[in-house]
Computed example of a mutant assay.
Amino acid sequence: MRPRKRSVRLNPTIMLEMACHTAMGVALGLGFAFALTFIDAFGIATLIAHSYQPKVTLALFVGTFTLAFAVGATLTGLVFTIMEER
């Protein structure tokens, strides 16, 4: 009987690289969201300030950008890592 092999190898280095890409995406998302809210070129800060619950709206806005950037950076890092190992 042949020994079972995993189809995908999970190295600790790959997981560390994914964590680094995720942290980079979180940092970029936070920076971009806060830049959009503090530099009122597009009127986003005014819209948030005049909303029903400004703190909740700001948290939702920043959280959405942070999550989007984090997922995007993680998936991009995964693709780069897989292509690098080939």
Rank of each mutant, 00 (worst) to 15 (best):
A19T: 14
L58Q: 09
F80K: 14
I44P: 03
Y52E: 06
F34K: 01
L67W: 15
R9F: 02
A35L: 15
A59R: 01
K5V: 13
K5F: 12
M18E: 09
T46N: 05
A27E: 03
G63A: 10
H50R: 09
I82A: 03
A49I: 02
M1F: 15
I82C: 00
R86W: 05
L36N: 11
D40Q: 12
L60C: 11
M15L: 15
R2H: 12
I82S: 00
T66A: 14
A27R: 02
F80I: 13
A23F: 15
F69W: 10
I14M: 09
T57D: 08
A68V: 12
M18C: 03
Y52L: 08
R9V: 06
M18W: 04
L28D: 00
V62D: 05
F69D: 06
F65D: 06
I39V: 15
A19S: 15
T37W: 12
R9W: 01
M15A: 08
A27S: 12
L28I: 14
G31P: 04
V62Y: 04
C20Y: 04
P54C: 03
T57S: 09
H50Y: 05
L36F: 15
F42A: 15
G43V: 14
L28K: 08
T74L: 13
F38C: 03
G43F: 12
E84K: 15
R4N: 05
L67G: 13
M24G: 10
T37V: 13
F69Q: 10
R6D: 11
A49C: 00
T81Q: 06
E84V: 02
L16C: 10
T76P: 00
G29I: 11
E84H: 06
H50I: 00
E85V: 03
A41D: 08
I82H: 02
H21R: 09
V26D: 01
A73W: 11
H21T: 07
S51P: 04
F69E: 07
L36T: 08
V62C: 07
R4D: 11
F38Y: 13
F80C: 07
A35W: 12
T13I: 08
A23W: 07
C20L: 13
I48K: 04
T37E: 10
V62G: 02
T46K: 02
G72W: 01
L78E: 03
